[in-house]
Amino acid sequence: MRFSDSFESRFTSMLGHYPTKRSVLVPTLLYMQDELGYLTDEAIRDIAQRLELTELEVRNVISYYSMLTTRPRGKYNVQVCRNISCMLCGADDVIAHLKKRLGIAHKGTTADGMFSFEEVECIGACSWAPAMQVNYDFHEKLTPENAEKVLDEYRRKGSQ
């Protein structure tokens, strides 16, 4: 499969970091997913071949890690933390609000493919709760209002 040059160069250099090929699997899957949006059957075959694994082994690994997915997602994956610190600081309201605004449920994707929404476990922002990540970017000290603004900003960026 074709991946970006930066993917390939990172992949090649990572192979040199470990005594076994397989060790690059988890981070590589995430980078593949970043490029493809999700882990397609073709991608799974590709990585299995590269690392001399069976597709089953690759699938078993994918299904273990919560960030990896074999289903398409929106351009922006909105992941709001629902864990204790965030919950205590009002995450439930943020979650309810964003769901309503986006019109989708947990793990849903908007019809225009712009957003997916996911409630996630602790993302390491407890002292700045409530928090969310949109793709890899953190947004902290959320309220329903400022969270919505953040999404507006992404929508604007995404439709350019």
């Binding site: 089953l56 082994e57 299904s63 273990y64």
Partner: peptide, 9 residues
């Protein structure tokens, strides 16, 4: 044969 594995968690 390695035809079975463990998926999900």
């Amino acid at each position: 044969v390695w035809a079975l594995g463990t998926a999900n968690r």
